[in-house]
């Protein structure tokens, strides 16, 4: 009896300790980024263009806007496709050969390194149109979103019990109404959660952007143009070796980190509220 209690206590202590050790890198990164990036932050930093080379001051406004535009476009392409795929797999495939193929394709897609997706978008779009373009970036990022969203949608819809479905069928409702208004309605929280997570995920992707939207020192002029983004800005500035640019890179990192963290907090609050 006593022996078991000691073992229990030991187990508890070890796991607590390991958890604390695991939390160290995360806290370290967050603190480091906050300490180094906070000094760069100002209103000017957020709303103005980068200063011409050699001048002091300037901001990263175009990169913030660029990331938001590229992410938004990726969502416009990726979310409907991801959700539609999830709906198909959960409700309409009935274990057919196509569905098995589709499922393998999605699993593979989620395993492909993002740099390859960038190269793919590069060869498919950038080479064809002859210049770097934000559209290609959105395309590459949307491919990253699809498996995340489609899997969560499929799983969320599959958890809707037969009882509920039969209740809907017995009301004489058509299949598409049941699928969209009831089954998807019940799975809504997993769809929203996964969409937010996919959004956070692409906010951190840099490699695909290097081949597609590249960078610009100006405000976005059109969607089919090269476009600045926080990710590429951090990559460029951090590698530049200029003291003032490195500070700006830390500032941009802090903004990006805050974006991702706030999405994660949102997801957490959302899923606990619904669940």
């Amino acid at each position: 009896m006593n022996m078991r209690r000691t073992k229990d206590l030991l187990m508890k202590l070890t796991s607590t300790l390991i958890t604390l050790i695991m939390a160290v890198p995360l806290l370290w990164i967050i603190l480091d980024v906050i300490i180094k990036g906070a000094s760069a932050l100002s209103l000017d930093f957020i709303i103005s263009l980068p200063a011409p080379f050699g001048e002091v001051g300037g901001g990263i406004g175009n990169a913030i806007l660029g990331t938001l535009i590229i992410n938004a476009m990726a969502c416009v392409i990726g979310l409907p496709l991801g959700i539609a795929t999830g709906i198909y797999l959960s409700e309409y495939s009935n274990g057919s050969k196509i569905s098995a193929l589709l499922r393998t394709a999605i699993d593979t897609l989620s395993g492909i390194p993002s740099i390859i997706l960038g190269l793919f978008a590069f060869s498919l779009i950038v080479i064809r149109v002859g210049h770097y373009t934000a559209l290609a970036a959105a395309f590459a990022l949307s491919i990253i979103m699809i498996p995340v969203v489609s899997k969560a949608t499929e799983e969320g819809m599959k958890t809707v019990s037969v009882d509920i479905r039969e209740g809907a069928i017995a009301l004489g409702l058509p299949k598409w109404v049941i699928t969209i208004k009831i089954v998807l309605g019940i799975a809504k929280s997993s769809v929203i959660t996964s969409s937010l997570l996919a959004f956070a995920r692409i906010s951190g992707e840099t490699a695909p952007l290097l081949f597609t939207s590249l960078f610009s020192y100006y405000w976005p002029r059109g969607l089919n143009e090269p476009m600045a983004s926080l990710q590429v800005l951090i990559y460029n500035y951090a590698m530049s070796g200029f003291e003032s640019w490195v500070v700006k890179a830390w500032g941009a990192s802090l903004l990006l980190m805050l974006l991702v963290l706030s999405i994660n907090i949102l997801v957490r609050r959302f899923s606990t509220k619904v669940g």
């Binding site: 019990s161 009882d163 509920i164 039969e166 209740g167 017995a170 009831i182 309605g185």
Partner: peptide
């Protein structure tokens, strides 16, 4: 119409 063994109200409504 039909009523089932286990009550099955739509949980999202």
């Amino acid at each position: 119409g039909m009523v089932f063994q286990k009550p099955n109200p739509f949980p999202n409504m």
